[in-house]
Design a protein around this nucleic acid. Structure first.
Lengths: 143, 143
DNA sequence: TTTTCAATAGACTTGCCTATCTATTGAGAG
DNA sequence: CTCTCAATAGATAGGCAAGTCTATTGAAAA
Protein backbone atom coordinates (compact mmCIF):
# COMPACT_ATOMS: atom_id res chain seq x y z
CA UNK A 1 0.00 0.00 0.00
CA UNK A 2 1.32 3.44 -0.82
CA UNK A 3 -0.21 5.10 2.18
CA UNK A 4 -1.24 3.71 5.48
CA UNK A 5 -4.82 2.92 6.30
CA UNK A 6 -5.30 6.11 8.28
CA UNK A 7 -4.28 8.25 5.32
CA UNK A 8 -6.65 6.36 3.08
CA UNK A 9 -9.48 6.95 5.52
CA UNK A 10 -8.60 10.64 5.73
CA UNK A 11 -8.71 11.07 1.96
CA UNK A 12 -11.99 9.22 1.75
CA UNK A 13 -13.55 11.21 4.54
CA UNK A 14 -12.52 14.57 3.14
CA UNK A 15 -13.69 13.58 -0.31
CA UNK A 16 -17.01 12.60 1.19
CA UNK A 17 -17.28 15.87 3.04
CA UNK A 18 -16.41 17.96 -0.01
CA UNK A 19 -18.94 16.09 -2.10
CA UNK A 20 -21.61 16.52 0.57
CA UNK A 21 -21.57 20.28 0.09
CA UNK A 22 -21.76 22.93 2.79
CA UNK A 23 -25.50 23.21 3.22
CA UNK A 24 -25.62 21.41 6.53
CA UNK A 25 -23.22 19.63 8.88
CA UNK A 26 -22.49 16.00 8.15
CA UNK A 27 -22.71 13.72 11.15
CA UNK A 28 -19.75 11.53 11.96
CA UNK A 29 -21.87 8.41 11.79
CA UNK A 30 -23.27 9.29 8.38
CA UNK A 31 -19.85 10.09 6.99
CA UNK A 32 -18.50 6.87 8.45
CA UNK A 33 -21.20 4.81 6.82
CA UNK A 34 -20.90 6.61 3.51
CA UNK A 35 -17.13 6.23 3.37
CA UNK A 36 -17.00 2.82 5.00
CA UNK A 37 -14.62 3.88 7.73
CA UNK A 38 -15.02 2.51 11.27
CA UNK A 39 -17.02 5.24 12.95
CA UNK A 40 -15.02 5.71 16.12
CA UNK A 41 -11.84 5.68 14.15
CA UNK A 42 -13.22 8.26 11.77
CA UNK A 43 -13.93 10.53 14.72
CA UNK A 44 -10.27 10.50 15.65
CA UNK A 45 -9.24 11.34 12.10
CA UNK A 46 -11.79 14.13 11.78
CA UNK A 47 -10.49 15.59 15.00
CA UNK A 48 -7.13 16.03 13.27
CA UNK A 49 -8.81 17.74 10.35
CA UNK A 50 -10.49 20.10 12.80
CA UNK A 51 -7.21 20.81 14.56
CA UNK A 52 -5.59 21.58 11.22
CA UNK A 53 -8.39 24.03 10.48
CA UNK A 54 -9.72 22.28 7.40
CA UNK A 55 -12.99 21.35 9.03
CA UNK A 56 -15.30 22.88 11.61
CA UNK A 57 -17.14 20.68 14.06
CA UNK A 58 -20.35 21.31 15.91
CA UNK A 59 -21.43 19.36 18.93
CA UNK A 60 -24.96 18.52 19.87
CA UNK A 61 -28.25 18.55 18.09
CA UNK A 62 -27.93 19.20 14.38
CA UNK A 63 -24.18 19.14 14.73
CA UNK A 64 -21.53 17.44 12.66
CA UNK A 65 -18.67 18.42 10.41
CA UNK A 66 -18.48 21.15 7.77
CA UNK A 67 -15.67 22.17 5.46
CA UNK A 68 -13.77 25.21 6.71
CA UNK A 69 -11.63 25.77 3.62
CA UNK A 70 -12.34 26.07 -0.08
CA UNK A 71 -11.72 22.77 -1.88
CA UNK A 72 -9.32 24.51 -4.27
CA UNK A 73 -7.18 25.54 -1.32
CA UNK A 74 -6.92 22.09 0.18
CA UNK A 75 -4.29 19.83 -1.33
CA UNK A 76 -3.85 16.12 -0.85
CA UNK A 77 -0.56 16.73 0.91
CA UNK A 78 -2.37 18.86 3.48
CA UNK A 79 -4.74 16.08 4.42
CA UNK A 80 -1.99 13.49 4.47
CA UNK A 81 0.17 15.67 6.69
CA UNK A 82 -2.69 16.41 9.04
CA UNK A 83 -3.48 12.72 9.30
CA UNK A 84 0.05 11.98 10.44
CA UNK A 85 1.91 11.27 7.23
CA UNK A 86 5.26 13.03 7.14
CA UNK A 87 6.89 13.18 3.73
CA UNK A 88 10.22 14.15 5.26
CA UNK A 89 10.16 11.15 7.52
CA UNK A 90 9.92 8.84 4.55
CA UNK A 91 13.45 7.58 4.47
CA UNK A 92 15.27 6.74 1.32
CA UNK A 93 14.56 3.13 0.53
CA UNK A 94 18.00 2.31 1.71
CA UNK A 95 17.11 3.39 5.15
CA UNK A 96 20.23 5.43 5.24
CA UNK A 97 19.30 8.21 7.58
CA UNK A 98 21.39 11.01 6.19
CA UNK A 99 20.62 10.38 2.55
CA UNK A 100 20.36 13.66 0.66
CA UNK A 101 20.66 14.70 -2.94
CA UNK A 102 24.20 15.96 -2.35
CA UNK A 103 25.28 12.87 -0.48
CA UNK A 104 23.10 10.06 -1.73
CA UNK A 105 22.77 6.37 -0.95
CA UNK A 106 23.05 3.83 -3.79
CA UNK A 107 19.32 3.68 -4.42
CA UNK A 108 18.83 7.40 -4.11
CA UNK A 109 18.70 8.39 -7.81
CA UNK A 110 16.08 5.77 -8.57
CA UNK A 111 14.12 6.33 -5.42
CA UNK A 112 14.09 10.07 -5.94
CA UNK A 113 12.23 9.69 -9.20
CA UNK A 114 9.42 7.89 -7.42
CA UNK A 115 9.37 10.42 -4.64
CA UNK A 116 9.24 13.30 -7.11
CA UNK A 117 6.25 11.75 -8.85
CA UNK A 118 4.49 11.32 -5.56
CA UNK A 119 5.18 14.89 -4.53
CA UNK A 120 3.99 16.24 -7.85
CA UNK A 121 0.75 14.41 -7.24
CA UNK A 122 0.30 15.24 -3.57
CA UNK A 123 1.23 18.91 -3.81
CA UNK A 124 -0.61 19.73 -7.01
CA UNK A 125 -3.88 17.87 -6.60
CA UNK A 126 -6.57 19.76 -4.72
CA UNK A 127 -9.94 18.66 -3.45
CA UNK A 128 -11.49 20.86 -6.10
CA UNK A 129 -9.77 18.60 -8.64
CA UNK A 130 -11.16 15.61 -6.82
CA UNK A 131 -14.62 17.13 -6.69
CA UNK A 132 -14.59 18.08 -10.36
CA UNK A 133 -13.25 14.75 -11.55
CA UNK A 134 -15.70 12.80 -9.46
CA UNK A 135 -18.85 14.80 -10.10
CA UNK A 136 -20.21 12.30 -12.58
CA UNK A 137 -19.43 9.39 -10.31
CA UNK A 138 -21.99 8.28 -7.79
CA UNK A 139 -21.09 7.46 -4.21
CA UNK A 140 -19.91 3.90 -3.99
CA UNK A 141 -18.01 3.93 -0.78
CA UNK A 142 -19.31 0.58 0.35
CA UNK A 143 -17.29 -2.42 -0.76
CA UNK B 1 6.03 4.85 3.71
CA UNK B 2 5.30 3.92 0.12
CA UNK B 3 6.33 0.32 0.54
CA UNK B 4 6.47 -1.87 3.55
CA UNK B 5 9.67 -2.64 5.38
CA UNK B 6 10.05 -6.03 3.74
CA UNK B 7 9.95 -4.50 0.27
CA UNK B 8 12.54 -1.94 1.28
CA UNK B 9 14.80 -4.69 2.54
CA UNK B 10 14.33 -6.65 -0.66
CA UNK B 11 15.30 -3.70 -2.83
CA UNK B 12 18.33 -2.99 -0.67
CA UNK B 13 19.45 -6.58 -0.67
CA UNK B 14 19.14 -7.02 -4.41
CA UNK B 15 20.91 -3.73 -4.99
CA UNK B 16 23.69 -4.93 -2.74
CA UNK B 17 23.91 -8.23 -4.54
CA UNK B 18 23.99 -6.63 -7.99
CA UNK B 19 26.68 -4.21 -6.88
CA UNK B 20 28.72 -7.03 -5.40
CA UNK B 21 29.23 -8.57 -8.82
CA UNK B 22 29.10 -12.24 -9.70
CA UNK B 23 32.68 -13.26 -8.97
CA UNK B 24 31.84 -15.17 -5.82
CA UNK B 25 28.78 -15.91 -3.66
CA UNK B 26 27.82 -13.31 -1.09
CA UNK B 27 27.13 -14.71 2.34
CA UNK B 28 23.82 -13.86 3.98
CA UNK B 29 25.57 -12.40 6.98
CA UNK B 30 27.79 -10.15 4.88
CA UNK B 31 24.88 -8.93 2.80
CA UNK B 32 22.90 -8.32 5.95
CA UNK B 33 25.62 -6.22 7.47
CA UNK B 34 26.28 -4.32 4.28
CA UNK B 35 22.62 -3.50 3.74
CA UNK B 36 21.72 -3.08 7.39
CA UNK B 37 18.95 -5.64 7.30
CA UNK B 38 18.38 -7.99 10.26
CA UNK B 39 20.28 -11.07 9.19
CA UNK B 40 17.71 -13.76 9.90
CA UNK B 41 15.05 -11.67 8.31
CA UNK B 42 17.21 -11.16 5.27
CA UNK B 43 17.51 -14.91 4.92
CA UNK B 44 13.77 -15.23 4.62
CA UNK B 45 13.61 -12.51 2.00
CA UNK B 46 16.47 -14.01 0.01
CA UNK B 47 14.64 -17.32 0.05
CA UNK B 48 11.84 -15.64 -1.86
CA UNK B 49 14.30 -14.27 -4.38
CA UNK B 50 15.65 -17.79 -4.83
CA UNK B 51 12.16 -19.21 -5.27
CA UNK B 52 11.42 -16.57 -7.90
CA UNK B 53 14.58 -17.59 -9.72
CA UNK B 54 16.35 -14.25 -9.45
CA UNK B 55 19.06 -15.58 -7.18
CA UNK B 56 20.88 -18.85 -6.75
CA UNK B 57 21.87 -20.03 -3.29
CA UNK B 58 24.61 -22.37 -2.27
CA UNK B 59 24.78 -24.04 1.11
CA UNK B 60 27.89 -24.89 2.99
CA UNK B 61 31.49 -23.84 2.78
CA UNK B 62 32.07 -20.98 0.35
CA UNK B 63 28.35 -20.74 -0.19
CA UNK B 64 26.07 -17.76 -0.30
CA UNK B 65 23.90 -15.97 -2.83
CA UNK B 66 24.61 -15.12 -6.47
CA UNK B 67 22.52 -13.32 -9.05
CA UNK B 68 20.76 -15.70 -11.41
CA UNK B 69 19.44 -13.11 -13.85
CA UNK B 70 21.00 -10.24 -15.75
CA UNK B 71 20.42 -6.92 -13.97
CA UNK B 72 18.83 -5.48 -17.12
CA UNK B 73 16.22 -8.23 -17.00
CA UNK B 74 15.25 -7.68 -13.40
CA UNK B 75 12.77 -4.90 -12.78
CA UNK B 76 11.81 -3.30 -9.51
CA UNK B 77 8.29 -4.70 -9.88
CA UNK B 78 9.73 -8.21 -10.03
CA UNK B 79 11.49 -7.87 -6.71
CA UNK B 80 8.53 -6.19 -5.10
CA UNK B 81 6.20 -8.92 -6.31
CA UNK B 82 8.53 -11.68 -5.17
CA UNK B 83 8.80 -10.08 -1.75
CA UNK B 84 5.07 -10.20 -1.33
CA UNK B 85 3.90 -6.87 -2.70
CA UNK B 86 0.88 -7.29 -4.96
CA UNK B 87 0.07 -4.32 -7.14
CA UNK B 88 -3.36 -5.68 -7.93
CA UNK B 89 -4.18 -6.01 -4.30
CA UNK B 90 -3.55 -2.33 -3.79
CA UNK B 91 -7.11 -1.17 -3.59
CA UNK B 92 -8.26 2.15 -4.83
CA UNK B 93 -7.87 4.60 -1.99
CA UNK B 94 -11.59 4.44 -1.49
CA UNK B 95 -11.34 0.86 -0.51
CA UNK B 96 -14.10 0.07 -2.89
CA UNK B 97 -13.34 -3.45 -3.96
CA UNK B 98 -14.73 -3.44 -7.45
CA UNK B 99 -13.24 -0.14 -8.49
CA UNK B 100 -12.15 -0.27 -12.13
CA UNK B 101 -11.56 2.28 -14.83
CA UNK B 102 -14.94 1.54 -16.41
CA UNK B 103 -16.77 1.69 -13.13
CA UNK B 104 -14.78 3.94 -10.85
CA UNK B 105 -15.06 5.16 -7.28
CA UNK B 106 -15.06 8.90 -6.59
CA UNK B 107 -11.33 9.09 -5.95
CA UNK B 108 -10.46 6.83 -8.84
CA UNK B 109 -9.38 9.42 -11.44
CA UNK B 110 -7.03 11.12 -9.02
CA UNK B 111 -5.74 7.92 -7.50
CA UNK B 112 -5.14 6.41 -10.92
CA UNK B 113 -2.67 9.15 -11.77
CA UNK B 114 -0.57 8.22 -8.75
CA UNK B 115 -0.80 4.53 -9.50
CA UNK B 116 0.23 5.11 -13.10
CA UNK B 117 3.31 7.01 -11.96
CA UNK B 118 4.22 4.23 -9.61
CA UNK B 119 3.77 1.57 -12.26
CA UNK B 120 5.82 3.54 -14.75
CA UNK B 121 8.61 3.57 -12.19
CA UNK B 122 8.31 -0.02 -11.00
CA UNK B 123 7.90 -1.61 -14.42
CA UNK B 124 10.49 0.42 -16.26
CA UNK B 125 13.32 0.63 -13.78
CA UNK B 126 15.73 -2.29 -13.90
CA UNK B 127 18.58 -3.22 -11.63
CA UNK B 128 20.90 -2.32 -14.44
CA UNK B 129 19.55 1.22 -14.14
CA UNK B 130 20.14 1.04 -10.42
CA UNK B 131 23.65 -0.29 -10.92
CA UNK B 132 24.53 2.34 -13.50
CA UNK B 133 23.09 5.24 -11.56
CA UNK B 134 24.78 4.16 -8.36
CA UNK B 135 28.20 3.25 -9.69
CA UNK B 136 29.75 6.48 -8.49
CA UNK B 137 28.17 6.16 -5.08
CA UNK B 138 29.96 4.27 -2.37
CA UNK B 139 28.19 1.78 -0.15
CA UNK B 140 26.56 3.58 2.69
CA UNK B 141 24.07 1.08 3.83
CA UNK B 142 24.67 1.68 7.49
CA UNK B 143 22.65 4.45 9.04
C1' DT C 1 -34.18 23.22 33.05
C1' DT C 2 -34.25 19.02 31.18
C1' DT C 3 -33.65 16.04 27.44
C1' DT C 4 -31.50 14.55 23.51
C1' DC C 5 -28.07 14.53 20.26
C1' DA C 6 -23.38 14.33 18.65
C1' DA C 7 -18.44 15.33 19.09
C1' DT C 8 -14.43 14.46 22.18
C1' DA C 9 -11.26 12.01 25.14
C1' DG C 10 -8.71 8.34 26.53
C1' DA C 11 -8.13 3.69 27.97
C1' DC C 12 -8.11 -0.72 26.19
C1' DT C 13 -7.90 -4.57 22.80
C1' DT C 14 -6.67 -6.70 18.46
C1' DG C 15 -4.07 -8.11 14.73
C1' DC C 16 -0.50 -8.15 11.74
C1' DC C 17 4.05 -7.10 10.18
C1' DT C 18 8.79 -7.51 11.85
C1' DA C 19 12.16 -9.64 14.10
C1' DT C 20 14.47 -13.29 16.72
C1' DC C 21 15.72 -17.89 18.18
C1' DT C 22 16.75 -22.69 17.74
C1' DA C 23 17.16 -26.37 15.26
C1' DT C 24 18.02 -28.89 10.81
C1' DT C 25 19.65 -29.71 6.18
C1' DG C 26 23.07 -29.80 2.76
C1' DA C 27 27.57 -29.02 0.67
C1' DG C 28 32.54 -28.60 0.42
C1' DA C 29 37.25 -29.14 2.79
C1' DG C 30 40.54 -31.90 4.95
C1' DC D 1 34.16 -39.96 7.05
C1' DT D 2 34.11 -36.19 9.77
C1' DC D 3 34.16 -31.28 10.55
C1' DT D 4 32.87 -26.86 9.56
C1' DC D 5 30.32 -23.58 7.26
C1' DA D 6 26.16 -21.51 5.63
C1' DA D 7 21.37 -21.69 3.95
C1' DT D 8 16.68 -23.30 5.36
C1' DA D 9 12.70 -24.14 8.26
C1' DG D 10 9.57 -23.35 11.71
C1' DA D 11 8.23 -21.78 16.11
C1' DT D 12 8.07 -17.89 19.00
C1' DA D 13 8.18 -13.15 20.49
C1' DG D 14 7.81 -7.98 20.01
C1' DG D 15 5.93 -3.64 18.64
C1' DC D 16 3.10 -0.60 16.56
C1' DA D 17 -0.89 0.76 13.76
C1' DA D 18 -5.71 -0.04 13.67
C1' DG D 19 -9.92 -0.60 15.76
C1' DT D 20 -13.18 -0.72 19.87
C1' DC D 21 -15.43 0.68 24.11
C1' DT D 22 -17.02 3.72 27.71
C1' DA D 23 -17.57 7.92 29.64
C1' DT D 24 -17.63 12.94 29.23
C1' DT D 25 -18.39 17.44 27.30
C1' DG D 26 -21.02 20.75 24.95
C1' DA D 27 -24.83 22.56 22.31
C1' DA D 28 -29.50 22.95 20.63
C1' DA D 29 -34.45 21.86 21.20
C1' DA D 30 -38.57 21.35 23.91
Amino acid sequence: MFLNQTSHYALRAMTGLVRAGNSKPVKSGELAEKTDVPSHYLSKIMRKMVEAGYVRSQKGHGGGFVMNIAPEDLRIIDVLTASGFDIDEQPCVFGWEMCRNEDPCPLHPVWKRLKDSFNEWAYHTTFEDIRRESQDIEDKFKR
